[in-house]
Design a binder for these strands. Structure first.
Lengths: 218, 218, 218, 218
DNA sequence: GATGAATGAGGATTCATTCAT
DNA sequence: TATGAATGAATCCTCATTCAT
């Protein structure tokens, strides 16, 4: 909830402020991040800052809103057909997650940074988590309906497992790609065109599928 | 590496300082944590603090050492026989993890907090992660040797998956127990005596086992 | 290089800060001089100080710049015609030196204080010395050209001698005047109107002249 | 006036403390010099320090006493026959000054450092100056008696001039020697064996002699 | 709407010295 | 006599925020 004045700003200036702020919050704890430095780097008067934002927290929260919005739009554009089967859907989800990180590397890093932070207003972080968990629960329920997930699976537990995994999978794959000397955009324009990364994704969802599926013989 | 002076202190005073410090670092970013507040709460002179520790970082690191030591001893005492099969072993590991959290709730919370911090001396956090991952890789290799894990499983990927899961499982189970109105120590003296928690653990490792195991029919 | 903010200050406030600072640095080592005390005495907030100056050193250096500027202007206004002969010129120089001390007693004392300090940025003090020595060397070369200084005189050595002498002469004369019960401004408006002081100056430059001059009979 | 306990110390330990202290006071302002550092470097307990000395000032003053004693003994051993003529005597004096600096470089540097300091107890520094000036006045009176100094010379002024000059001459000559690439002890074992340095000393005292002497023709 | 000076609380840390052992 | 832990005042400096222009 930045003030209206902020949104009245020329887009360039607004972007400059946001970019500078992301950098500052990436490089420093919430507490250690300095409004003074942000103003200096963004070349705005300190007084102006307080005409755009209520204060430090206001700015910080706004960055998350930006991230949420960006991720939301990203998903809307890329989300696959849920009909394709639950595991294929999840696999595509993971790919989109990585693509989002590649598209907004700084913004998504900021998200990780917040995970253990406590500077966020109580409940903010939790709400994000709850939303994600609810999403996975819906997905799992759908899987059960489709018959590809065993009915006895505890949906809450499984949602937790998927959440733990997905929260880190993107970074892991990027790290593996880097370790293998791959660079995004070289082969086709997606990391996932790389056979090695393909194989890793395949195996990940094979494991999940085997673990979760309706086991015919038991 | 607190100074010798610190270790010469009467145990009670030392404990008081540590407890106060844990609280401070739990409630604040590294940067925001205040030596002044710690001194005031621990009722020691500010000058004394610097006779015990090199500085803020020294204290912070010491808390991690304490945690590492505590966890190490905890494991040494409780670690099961690896012969019992890899999944039984992992299951016991998870239980121990939860028990550690119950035994040292504040210390282990501090560990989670560090995940996103950037104030730690470079490499400290990473080293901890590397150690854990290496441990899981060894475990998986052993599982392959025992024939309970499919040989085509990428050990690095699987270690990452287990690490993601285990890092959060303890907290999740405690939260589920709490949601179910259970309290540790009421039924027998372990949370795991509770049938509901037992069931969750069973299912978790069933899923993993199915996912990872040598698949007979393929 | 105080910040622009400082120069934007009303002249009175600026002067108050400078006066207080001079006092503080006169009464204390560089290290012992206290920004807190300066702020208190100048009745400015501690935060404000750091909006005017980069830090302690910045302030300290600024005092020297002030002195250099003041002395420069003082000389520009009072410097005699070099045509009058080298010793007459030097004599006038000494008088101006004393007059400067009378006009800016605290500022010039600050200059003496710096001699043994080691907190100044490396080279600052030395550069001042080098400038003075170079000035004397030029003067001596001129004297040789005029035939009033023996050509075999080592200019570097002589410059050093003059520098040693001039650095202290002002204070010495003032002290003699004080010991004789004279007060500046009582007799005419210059100390040098006093016959006793006149005599001392005469003798000083007689000695130098005899020592340095082209000795006709040798 | 260190306490008796200090003088009861084994000579080695005493020397160690003194050496460390000289270093500390050479590298720092009086105020910035740290008893803690001295204790650490000298490997004595902080409590012990206060059993040897009253406090920081006590130690500092003791270093000056040591210097005074050392210089006194140095002079006693090297002082020439005053009969040899006043200028020859002064010349020898200057040489001894330099030799003292070469023999006790750190101790004598400490002396310079104090010149502009204000940390010395009031009067200490002045007394040293007064002693030196008195010495020069006696020397000049003697020169008048010997007929080598003009009777009309103001003894106080001349003493001041000599004092200014001698206070710096040693350092100047060493610096010249260094600039000329000379090193003490290479040629004979004295810097003064060097012809260039000889020449400078000769000229210095020629100048003084011409300036001060009974001028035959006036 | 923009500015940037003013504020003073608070930060980590070092210090000389005392004193109980 | 030797020790070294305890002390708390004092250090410089940074901060987010306010407010008059």
């Amino acid at each position: 909830m930045p003030k209206q004045t902020f949104f009245n700003l020329p887009a360039g200036k607004r972007k400059r402020i946001i970019d500078v702020a992301i950098t500052e919050f990436l490089e420093n704890d919430y507490q250690a991040a300095s409004i003074s430095r942000i103003c200096a780097a963004a070349e705005i008067a300190k007084g102006s800052f307080y005409q755009y934002f209520t204060g430090k927290e206001d700015l910080y929260l706004h960055l998350f809103e930006l991230m949420a919005t960006a991720k939301g739009e990203f998903l809307k554009e890329n989300l696959p057909d849920p009909q394709t089967g639950i595991f294929e859907y999840m696999r595509r989800l993971a790919e989109i997650g990585v693509e989002f990180e590649l598209a907004y590397p700084r913004l998504s890093k900021l998200g990780y940074r917040a995970a253990a932070g406590n500077a966020l207003p109580a409940g903010f972080e939790e709400r994000m988590q709850q939303d994600t968990l609810a999403f996975f629960r819906r997905l799992l329920a759908q899987g059960k309906a489709q018959g590809s997930i065993a009915p006895e699976i505890d949906e809450d537990l499984a949602a937790f497992m998927l959440n733990s995994l997905f929260g880190e999978l993107g970074r892991y794959l990027m790290q593996r790609a880097e370790a293998a000397g791959l660079r995004p955009g070289e082969n086709g324009n997606s990391l996932f065109a790389e056979p090695q990364i393909q194989a890793l994704l395949n195996q990940t969802f094979d494991i999940l599928e085997k673990g979760f599926r309706q086991d015919l013989r038991d």
